[in-house]
């Protein structure tokens, strides 16, 4: 069910129908993609967005997950609610909300203005627009995966380390992090896969060019009526995603063994 469309897509981009109706083997759509500066820019901005989002997600989500793992009480419940909330917000609503809040003359501008601060340079319609949206959108998934990893860290081991005089950072570095490396890998590969193929947020919040692969593929397919090139772009995106997918598979396999 999953493998067949992939194989068929690869096949359809390599064996193009010739003028005489006989299909022939050709790499030309791939050659076109990699010789076309416009397409390369789109791929680059997709990789950049994905990378930046992944880099931002970890330092944001790890403290939240740690807090939720070890804190108890009312406040922790509120934090958890806030952290999981983005999961239930459709991205199209999120996009327009971000325009309202962070867009030009948005809420942030109004607040800044009321205390006499200058306007912010709005991220709307720049590559940073989708980054902010995607990070917010991916917080719940990352936090949940990290939390499940932190569940494997027993209270006793943390307390034992404290008893022998380990400081906070030492506990984090020597006790907690080694146990959740797998979760971190899984979280990163999951979010990266999601971000790579993101559509709505880059479509509404991003700049007109370069486009991310999602909107680019859709435009090539629908506006330009050019399925062959759209599939080529899809195969290339898939090739990048499979690398992250392999990370995930490997860490799961390693888990099984131990």
């Amino acid at each position: 069910m999953i493998i067949w469309p992939i194989l068929s897509a690869i096949g359809r981009t390599l064996w193009l129908p010739g003028a005489d109706g006989v299909s022939r083997f050709s790499l030309e759509t791939y050659v076109f993609f990699f010789s076309d500066q416009y397409s390369i820019n789109n791929l680059m901005v997709t990789l950049w967005t994905t990378g930046v989002c992944a880099l931002l997600l970890l330092p944001i989500c790890l403290p939240i997950a740690l807090y939720l793992r070890f804190a108890k009480g009312r406040l922790a419940a509120y934090v958890q609610g806030l952290a999981i909330f983005p999961m239930f917000v459709p991205s199209i609503i999120l996009s327009y909300a971000i325009i309202r809040v962070l867009g030009p003359n948005g809420t942030v501008d109004l607040l800044f203005n009321s205390v006499g601060l200058p306007k912010i340079r709005s991220p709307y319609l720049t590559p940073w627009g989708p980054v902010i949206g995607l990070v917010w959108d991916n917080i719940p998934l990352t936090v949940l995966i990290l939390l499940s990893g932190l569940g494997a860290v027993s209270d006793q081991s943390v307390e034992a380390a404290r008893d022998v005089g380990a400081r906070r950072w030492a506990v984090l570095w020597h006790i907690i992090l080694p146990r959740i490396t797998n979760s971190i890998l899984v979280a990163i590969s999951f979010t990266v896969l999601g971000i790579f193929s993101a559509f709505t947020l880059p479509y509404v919040l991003g700049p007109a060019a370069p486009e991310m692969m999602g909107p680019f593929m859709q435009r090539t397919f629908r506006d330009l009526n050019d399925p062959t090139n759209a599939i080529t772009q899809a195969v290339i995106s898939f090739a990048f995603c499979i690398v992250f997918g392999l990370f995930y598979v490997r860490s799961v396999a390693k888990n099984r063994k131990t």
Binding site: I99, R100, G103, V204, A208
Partner: peptide, 16 residues
Amino acid sequence: AYTAGNTPSLQLLSQS
């Protein structure tokens, strides 16, 4: 910059 549709343009105008 170029908005992604008719409505986002209206939104920018309405936000002045």
